[in-house]
Design a protein around this nucleic acid. Structure first.
Length: 257
DNA sequence: ATGTCGCTCATGGAGCGA
């Protein structure tokens, strides 16, 4: 059994006690982290290693930043930029072979406010991701695209869909881009396991969103066709969102046979 | 518009992104 998790930690140094506590109790084999909000040299490698994990990371000062952790399987980094725009300097992509699986850690652009430059950047980023995802599928090896997609795929994934019609996380253009990935053959693992349930992975810090369960499902695992039959369980470690000094996201995980 | 966080700059908060 292989347990793979994703967690937008919103600042790895501010979040380190929470991250270590969760690693200790959840014991995932592989973890994708987003929003490190730290340059490469400020990644807390010693503490991560002391917790029993190897790591590769792609940091950036102030914003973004992604990492892949592994407990026992070796990690071999194979890429740290999403192909298609060599002028894009934002650290939102990290690709590695972990054991026998290609693990892609993603932090898709937020895109707000809509309309605007940031929204256009998000759409372009999704175009690049779609092109690259197609190539990954063509390699015909097990791949998982993991991370914060900054999109709620359906109305089931938003506490109040009507409030989000002009939000960059729910605009039809972005949902269509996500749908395009599914049409390529990727499977939204959590939705596959729970076709009907309301599941959230993010609760805003604002307006007592956590207390009101005003949540969004924006952290996803897209698994390649090879892995669909190996998918056994999945869930959200929702209680972590209730901890002190916690992220606005909760960790999400799946298990593969 | 607002709310709350985390980060940076080079302050003793302000501005930005989410």
């Amino acid at each position: 059994m292989l347990k793979i998790a994703t967690y937008n930690i919103n600042g790895i140094n501010a979040r380190l006690p929470v991250l270590l506590q969760w690693l200790q109790e959840a014991k995932p084999d592989i973890v994708c982290l987003q929003e490190l909000k730290a340059p490469g040299e400020r990644f807390p490698l010693a503490e991560i290693q002391a917790a029993g994990y190897q790591a590769v990371w792609h940091g950036q000062k102030s914003w973004n930043g992604v990492a892949i952790l592994s407990r026992s399987l070796p990690i071999q980094e194979v890429g740290r930029s999403l192909p298609g725009d060599k002028d894009d300097v934002q650290s939102r992509y990290l690709e590695a072979v972990v054991g026998q699986i290609v693990i892609v850690c993603l932090y898709c652009p937020n895109g707000n406010p809509y309309p605007g430059e940031k929204f256009e950047y998000k759409l372009k980023w999704y175009k690049r991701l779609t092109a690259h995802a197609k190539k990954l599928l063509a390699h015909d090896v097990p791949v998982i695209l993991i991370g914060d997609y900054n999109v709620m795929p359906t109305t089931l994934d938003v506490y109040k869909p009507e409030k989000y019609v002009n939000d960059a996380l729910f605009r039809t253009e972005v949902r269509a881009a996500f749908d395009g990935l599914l049409k390529q053959g990727w499977t939204d693992a959590i939705r596959h396991l729970y076709p009907e349930e309301t599941i959230y992975t993010f609760w805003d810090y604002f307006r007592r969103a956590w207390e009101r369960n005003a949540g969004l499902r924006i952290d996803h695992f897209l698994i390649s066709p090879h892995l669909r039959d190996r998918l056994s369980r999945g869930g959200v470690d929702k209680h972590v969102r209730g901890w002190e000094k916690t992220s606005d996201h909760a960790p999400v995980w799946i298990e593969l046979k």
